[in-house]
């Protein structure tokens, strides 16, 4: 993508003749039209979406799926393997049958319940990191791509950000402001922003040379409107794809941070925290790590499958290149 200083007319005639396409060369537009019908036919996207739906329902419906408190400690039932059954007294003094589907942890908390509630944190973090980094990245990317004099400044700053490891940044932020959901989201978002900026900038650089953008300039459309009407819509499809991948990696990163003890406060049930607590005993009681691990893996896999499916449907050429 050279800066295309002069539009060379001689290569022009080639537009009239598309050697492989006998039907008047499919313009890039037509690909975008059937996107949703293609997404619906894409198996990978379907499986991904279905799995994500299940996990969302799981997180939302956690109180319905389990009668227990995720933080409820039961000293009598510590370190029990999956399938353990007993009776316990509830708050009113009645005896209730209790069955630990996925076993219990070192404090006797029900791992099944904790995993259900853990889905909430993971999803909230995944979605908010994706949304935040796309929002910030989109704004910066459009500015860097369209206003050439700002490009160097913004991009060098992004290069700087990319050089900071997410984990290191998280440790710094947590030590500054304490562990909380906000801190974790910020710590994960910052290193993701540059990837979005790069993506958006490259699209904007391409689109700003399109004749329809020049046509808009010559009919007197003000720059903000040009960006809004003609440039931004072109970034949506690739950004949706990018957002799914961001979401997946954010969930993974949160789990890693929590596992290392620099993520969410340790009393909050997250998949990373559950695994961190099971770490010392996992050779004897592998279920403490196994179940949250499976859910983490399935969730990230489902999101990535959805992303892959979306990418294949939105831009078939891109799928061949990657």
């Amino acid at each position: 993508m050279s800066s295309a200083i002069v539009h060379e007319p001689s290569s022009s005639d080639s537009a009239a003749e598309d050697p492989v396409a006998p039907t008047e060369g499919l313009p890039p537009v037509q690909r975008n039209l059937g996107v949703w019908s293609r997404v619906r036919r894409n198996v990978s996207a379907q499986i991904g979406a279905a799995l994500i739906a299940v996990i969302v329902l799981m997180g939302v419906g956690a109180p319905l799926l389990s009668a227990w408190d995720p933080d409820g400690i039961n000293p009598a039932a510590r370190n029990k393997t999956p399938g353990y059954e007993t009776t316990i007294r509830d708050d009113d003094g009645n005896k209730v049958a209790y069955r630990a589907l996925m076993g219990t942890d070192t404090l006797g908390r029900d791992i099944y319940t904790r995993v259900l509630y853990g889905a909430r944190v993971s999803l909230v973090i995944g979605v908010s990191v994706a949304a935040l980094s796309v929002a910030i990245g989109l704004a910066l990317g459009v500015v860097a791509g369209y206003f050439r004099w700002l490009d160097g400044l913004v991009m060098r700053f992004m290069d700087g950000l990319m050089a900071i490891p997410a984990i290191l940044l998280a440790i710094a932020l947590v030590s500054l402001s304490g562990a909380s959901l906000t801190t974790v989201i910020i710590a994960i978002t910052i290193p993701q922003v540059p990837t979005v900026v790069r993506l958006v900038r490259s699209i904007v650089l391409m689109i700003r040379e399109e004749p329809y953008v020049e046509a808009a300039i010559s009919v007197g459309t003000p720059t903000p409107k040009i960006l809004w009407r003609h440039v931004l819509p072109n970034t949506f499809a690739p950004l949706i794809v990018q957002a799914t991948f961001l979401c997946g990696s954010a969930i993974l990163l949160e789990a890693i941070l929590s596992f290392l003890g620099v993520g969410m406060p340790s009393d909050v049930p997250t998949w990373g925290n559950i695994m961190a607590e099971g770490r010392s005993l996992f050779q004897i009681y592998p279920h403490m790590i196994l179940f949250p691990g499976i859910f983490l893996a399935v969730t990230v896999l489902a999101i990535n499958m959805l992303g892959d499916g979306l990418r294949d449907s939105i831009d078939p050429r891109m799928s061949k290149q990657l």
């Binding site: 060369g25 004749p211 808009a216």
Partner: peptide, 29 residues
């Protein structure tokens, strides 16, 4: 001054925004 000079470009496939109706493109100016 822009309205006094108008341009028609070479590539008919790229001169119109694919996401806007023909009407929207014409009345924009």
């Amino acid at each position: 001054m822009r309205r006094k000079v108008q341009v028609i470009f070479q590539d008919p496939y790229r001169s119109l925004s694919p996401r806007r109706t023909v009407g929207a493109s014409i009345i924009e100016g």
